[in-house]
Amino acid sequence: MIRASLVVLSCVTALIASSLGAQEREVLLHAPDTLVETGVMKYVLPRFSLKTQVRVTLVPEAEAQMVLGAGGRPLMTGIGETWGVALLEETDDVARFADWLWSDVGQRTLFAFAPEGKPLFGPPAIVEQEVVEITFDGDADEGEQVSIVQCGRCHAVNEKGRMSDIGSTPSFFVLRAMGDWEQRFGAFYVLKPHAAFTQVIDITDPFPADRPSPIVPVEISLDDLENIMAYVGALTPADLGAPIQHQ
């Protein structure tokens, strides 16, 4: 009986320790309402959390471990302001989140936020002249396979699909040739017509019961999207010729 009790006590202790450990995997972030209302926090924070298992929670400034606002180290510009990051408490997870925001992946994520098809944010003026080689950490081969299954019904995603796409939709090669292709692919699920039939796990809201998807839904994860980005980034852009000169 005593031995069984000790086993139960050990299990309870392990569960409590596990619970406390899980609670520590959190960053308390404060951002002004004007920034939150753009939707960028809802766009960016899940991407970091899904990759790191560190939750980022928006809190009042008095409770924050870090602040995204007018002060601190400049991070980005947009909606008429330069936004910086100030670290108020330097835990491992806070430092990890801050490093991610300034990394290539974090910067790409921030600048890909384009709710109306036009990015809201860009690099701050003091680093505007830096040349950054953009790389993608997804698997290009996996990205091609996901593209074939999920996008191939409408777009030509590789050479084999050039004769089976819908003629009114641009191929991946044409889209790759566009200067804003990263924004187009990175946020495609909020752009028309994709928003009506696309679900990104843990990002998009379920379709309303009275407005289901008009076609078989496109269902992907953020990992799938990163793989697609890696695949498209490796494609040879279509030659669209010289820009049209207006008389």
Rank of each mutant, 00 (worst) to 15 (best):
T34G: 00
W83H: 01
L101H: 13
E81V: 02
V59F: 12
L75H: 01
R96H: 12
G72F: 12
S49L: 08
S49P: 02
P74N: 15
S49E: 13
R96F: 05
T91P: 01
W83F: 11
T34M: 08
A62Y: 08
V85D: 01
G78C: 08
T57G: 02
T34V: 11
Q53K: 08
V40T: 06
F48P: 01
V56P: 00
T77C: 10
K51G: 09
E37S: 10
E81L: 03
K42I: 00
V44I: 09
E63Q: 14
G69C: 12
I79F: 01
L88H: 04
D92I: 08
V59I: 10
G71E: 06
V44L: 11
T57H: 02
Q53A: 11
P74S: 14
Q65H: 00
Q65N: 02
G71D: 10
D92M: 05
K42A: 04
T57P: 07
A98L: 07
T38Y: 04
V54G: 10
L75Y: 00
A62F: 06
V67A: 12
A95P: 14
V54R: 15
L35V: 05
L68T: 12
Q53D: 07
V54S: 12
L50A: 13
D92K: 07
V40G: 04
G71Y: 03
G71A: 08
G39N: 03
L88N: 03
A86K: 13
W83R: 02
V67W: 06
V59S: 15
E37P: 02
D33Y: 07
T57E: 12
K42H: 00
L88R: 09
L58E: 10
D93A: 15
Q65G: 05
G39W: 00
P46Q: 03
P46K: 04
W83N: 01
V67R: 06
L35A: 07
T38F: 05
T57D: 11
D92A: 13
G84F: 01
T82C: 04
P60D: 08
A62D: 10
V40M: 06
A95H: 11
E37R: 11
T91H: 10
R73S: 06
L68V: 11
T34S: 03
L35H: 13
T91N: 07
G71W: 03
F48D: 03
R47S: 05
A64P: 10
E61S: 14
D93Y: 09
L87I: 15
E90W: 09
P60L: 01
E37A: 07
T82I: 03
Y43P: 05
V59Q: 14
K51V: 07
V85F: 05
Y43F: 12
T77D: 09
D33W: 10
V56C: 05
M66Y: 00
V36C: 00
A64N: 12
T82G: 09
M76I: 09
Q53E: 05
R47E: 04
G78V: 03
M76F: 04
L87C: 09
E90T: 05
L87V: 15
R55Q: 15
A62T: 12
T57M: 08
L58Q: 12
V56G: 01
P60T: 01
V94C: 08
V44P: 04
